Lab assay of single mutants.
Amino acid sequence: MTEYKLVVVGAGGVGKSALTIQLIQNHFVDEYDPTIEDSYRKQVVIDGETCLLDILDTAGQEEYSAMRDQYMRTGEGFLCVFAINNTKSFEDIHHYREQIKRVKDSEDVPMVLVGNKCDLPSRTVDTKQAQDLARSYGIPFIETSAKTRQGVDDAFYTLVREIRKHKEKMSKDGKKKKKKSKTKCVIM
């Protein structure tokens, strides 16, 4: 069974824990209790493949930012979460993405942009803004509501699919490099 290491990042209060708990335990946590770091595991079937999701729910508070490099190193894919009623959390996505790329030393890291709290009427981040940002990053965008469960499975499952595509691409690139290195030079 394939294991996928997913990391949920975003500013404090955007609903990272609520999304994760909704996926794992099928219930909505409405009281806000700032996370330092929590880890969850769940076995699911995605596109006919049974897999184990190892999900790291991270601290959004700035005082825990020193811990970010460590979990970013171990993560295979990242859910970059903002709240649709919090423009600052949307603007912060850029910083999370840049930090992930720096730590992973790669421009090509599996990510999904997630606009959470889409059940709320007080939207300050337009869907088109988020779609445009995701398009500019070359990553999928999904709106979710941890409260109603809308888009929750889709967000995590899409990230797994992005990781699969990335692994497939990397193995193809690896095979191309191996083929090239088999060419021999004969000096007579």
Rank of each mutant, 00 (worst) to 15 (best):
I36K: 00
R41Y: 07
D54E: 15
T58M: 02
D54Q: 15
Y64R: 05
Y40C: 01
V45M: 12
L52Y: 14
P34F: 05
G13W: 08
Y4R: 14
K42P: 04
C51E: 10
G15L: 00
K42D: 08
A59I: 01
S17H: 01
I21Y: 07
S17R: 01
I36A: 01
Y64P: 05
V7L: 06
T50G: 10
S17Q: 00
T50C: 09
L53N: 09
V8P: 00
T58P: 04
P34D: 03
V7H: 15
A59S: 14
V14C: 12
Y64G: 05
G48A: 08
D30K: 13
I55N: 07
L23H: 15
T20M: 05
L53I: 15
G10H: 00
Q61P: 07
D30M: 11
I46M: 12
Y40L: 01
I46K: 13
G12R: 06
E49H: 10
P34V: 05
N26K: 13
T20H: 02
G12C: 10
V7D: 02
K42T: 09
D33Y: 04
L56A: 04
D54A: 07
I55K: 02
E31G: 15
N26C: 08
V7S: 08
K5D: 07
I21H: 07
E31P: 12
I21Q: 14
I46P: 08
C51L: 11
D33Q: 05
K16W: 00
E37F: 03
Y64D: 06
Q22G: 09
I46G: 10
D54I: 05
D38V: 02
Y4S: 13
Q43V: 09
E37C: 05
G15Q: 01
I24N: 09
A11E: 10
G13T: 11
K42N: 10
E37Y: 03
F28E: 03
A59H: 03
V14G: 11
Y64C: 06
S17A: 01
V45G: 13
Y40D: 00
D33A: 04
D38C: 00
Y40H: 02
E49D: 11
R41F: 06
S39M: 15
Y32E: 05
L56V: 09
A59R: 03
G15E: 00
V29T: 12
D33M: 04
H27A: 13
S39G: 15
I24F: 08
H27D: 10
V14S: 12
D30Y: 11
D30I: 09
E63I: 04
L23E: 15
I36N: 00
S39T: 03
D38L: 00
P34R: 05
I46F: 10
L6Q: 02
R41P: 02
K42I: 09
A59D: 03
E37S: 04
E63F: 05
T58I: 05
Y64E: 06
Q43L: 07
I21L: 09
K16T: 06
T58E: 11
Q22D: 14
I24S: 12
P34Y: 04
Q43F: 06
D30E: 12
D33E: 06
V9M: 12
Y64M: 07
V44C: 12
R41E: 06
E49K: 11
Q22H: 10
Y64I: 05
E3M: 14
G60M: 01
G15T: 00
V9R: 03
T35E: 02
D38G: 02
L56W: 04
F28P: 03
V44Y: 13
S17K: 01
V8R: 02
I55T: 14
E49C: 08
D33S: 07
Q25C: 07
A18S: 10
A59Q: 03
V44G: 14
K42W: 06
L52I: 15
R41T: 06
V7W: 10
V29G: 10
L19R: 00
G15N: 01
V9Y: 06
K16M: 03
I21P: 01
G12W: 08
D57W: 00
K16E: 04
D33V: 04
K16V: 01
V7I: 14
A18F: 02
T35L: 01
L19G: 12
K5S: 07
I55C: 14
F28V: 05
K42S: 10
D47R: 09
G10R: 00
Y40W: 15
E62A: 08
A18W: 03
G60P: 03
K16Q: 01
G60I: 01
K5Y: 03
L52S: 15
P34A: 09
G60T: 01
G10M: 00
D38Y: 03
G13V: 10
D47K: 10
D33N: 05
Q43R: 14
L23D: 07
E63M: 06
K5C: 04
G15M: 00
G60S: 07
L19E: 14
D57V: 02
E62V: 07
R41C: 07
E49G: 09
V45H: 10
D57I: 02
T2C: 12
K16S: 10
Q61M: 11
D33F: 03
T20R: 01
D38W: 00
V8Y: 02
E62W: 06
E62Y: 08
T2S: 14
G60C: 03
E49F: 06
A11Q: 09
V8K: 02
D57Y: 01
T50Y: 08
E3K: 14
G10N: 02
V14E: 10
S17C: 03
C51G: 10
N26I: 05
I55Y: 04
T35G: 01
G48I: 06
T50R: 12
G15D: 00
E3N: 13
E62D: 11
T20V: 09
D47G: 11
L56E: 04
G15I: 01
L19D: 11
V45K: 13
G60R: 02
F28R: 04
T50V: 11
Q43W: 05
I55R: 00
V8G: 03
G10F: 00
E62K: 08
E31D: 13
G13C: 12
G13Y: 09
V9I: 13
G15V: 00
I55E: 00
V14N: 10
C51M: 10
Y64Q: 06
Y4I: 11
L23W: 14
V29L: 09
I55A: 14
G48R: 10
T50D: 12
I55W: 04
E49S: 11
I21N: 15
D47E: 11
E31T: 13
K42C: 07
D47F: 05
E63K: 09
Q22W: 10
D38N: 03
K42V: 08
V8T: 06
K42Q: 11
A11W: 07
G12M: 08
G10C: 06
H27T: 09
A18E: 03
G48H: 09
V14R: 05
H27Q: 14
G10L: 00
V14Q: 12
Q25P: 02
L6K: 01
Q43D: 12
